[in-house]
């Protein structure tokens, strides 16, 4: 009798038998889920292949990285994007000079000092800032810097708008990294009589350093690709302008927008060339971020 019931129980065990419907559903789900990942790869691959095949011709010309488009006719296959590359990097660096100290200090405030309503409102405002569209940031700087203060359109105004877009990324990564630093390190430092500011500067920041730099690189990659602020806040120039505070200045996105209006084959080639250059520039920063995060002292998620 006992063996009989055991055997029938075994036969009815859920581990032994799966109904066809359940099996089919499970299989279908696996296929759909895998497919959705593969579908996402299509636009990425397609886009990269397009930009590389259409843009590499411009890039391999020997003057591409060393000359501007000054004096180049629309239909001429000549010149390069040195002016735009300089403009993009100059605007990005100006932006970083303002945004990184401000962002790091705000991050320190949130992680080390912040309590109560002020900390809550800073967190809330950073959340809001990270959702502000770049065109709205550009309009705000236009309203403040150009309409109210009366300054001319300039690359510096672009940098100010980029600051608004860079800040939330820098603040978040700083705050997150500082929170990952074990409290034992802080306590050990206090126990040795080190004041709080020195503990933060000499113990906490060095521990979180590489993670923070990763965040900054990602932020830089994001702002370099922004087009809306340059459209609103600075004019385009086909020649080199080293002055960030005055005059028109090209940047890679602005060059693309201008060559978009040029129907000549040379313009099309320059447009895709500038697009490829922009992607390469952004990828370099992303790659640096990825490499740096490997060396992070405190492990992030």
């Amino acid at each position: 009798m006992t063996t009989d019931t055991l055997q029938s129980a075994e036969r009815a065990s859920p581990f032994q038998h799966l109904s066809g419907v359940r099996k089919a559903k499970n299989y279908l789900a696996s296929v759909l889920v895998t497919c959705s990942f593969l579908i996402a790869l299509i636009p990425l691959g397609w886009l990269l292949v397009t930009v590389v095949t259409k843009g590499y011709r411009a890039l391999v010309s020997e003057r591409w990285f060393t000359h501007s488009l000054s004096g180049v006719m629309p239909e001429q296959f000549a010149g390069g994007i040195y002016h735009a590359l300089y403009g993009s990097i100059a605007q990005g660096v100006m932006c970083a000079i303002i945004a990184i100290p401000l962002g790091v200090f705000t991050g320190i405030y949130l992680a080390e000092y912040g309590r109560g309503w002020l900390a809550r409102s800073v967190t809330f405002m950073v959340d809001i800032l990270s959702g502000v569209p770049s065109i709205v940031a550009a309009l705000f700087i236009f309203a403040l810097w150009i309409s109210v203060f009366g300054f001319p359109k300039s690359a510096f105004a672009v940098s100010l708008a980029l600051v608004l877009l860079m800040l939330p990324i820098v603040i978040r990564s700083t705050e997150e990294m500082l929170r990952l630093v074990p409290d034992q390190l802080r306590e050990a430092s206090y126990a040795l009589g080190v004041p709080q500011w020195k503990t933060i500067v000499k113990v906490v920041l060095p521990t979180a350093y590489s993670g923070m730099v990763t965040g900054m690189m990602l932020a830089m990659a994001r702002v370099l690709g922004e087009t809306a602020p340059v459209l609103v806040l600075v004019g385009y120039s086909r020649s080199i302008n080293y002055n960030v505070f005055d005059g028109n200045m090209a940047s890679l996105p602005l060059t693309i927008m201008n060559e978009l209006l040029n129907p000549e084959p040379a313009g099309v080639a320059r447009m895709w060339g500038a697009a490829l250059t922009l992607i390469l520039l952004v990828m370099i920063f992303n790659l640096m971020a990825a490499v740096l995060s490997r060396f992070s002292a405190v492990k992030s998620s």
């Binding site: 100290p101 401000l102 962002g103 200090f105 705000t106 320190i108 405030y109 949130l110 080390e112 000092y113 912040g114 002020l118 900390a119 409102s121 800073v122 405002m125 950073v126 809001i128 800032l129 502000v132 709205v136 940031a137 309009l139 705000f140 309203a143 403040l144 109210v148 608004l164 800040l167 603040i171 004041p195 709080q196 500011w197 020195k198 933060i200 500067v201």
Partner: peptide
């Protein structure tokens, strides 16, 4: 050390306030 501590705390808090006021200004200015 106390002065340095106060200065550092003030810098951090000031940055936080700057961010809050910048974001609030966006809506107002527009």
């Amino acid at each position: 050390h106390r002065r340095a501590d106060a200065l550092f705390r003030w810098l951090a808090t000031g940055s936080g306030i700057a961010v809050v006021s910048a974001v609030s200004l966006i809506g107002v200015f527009l």
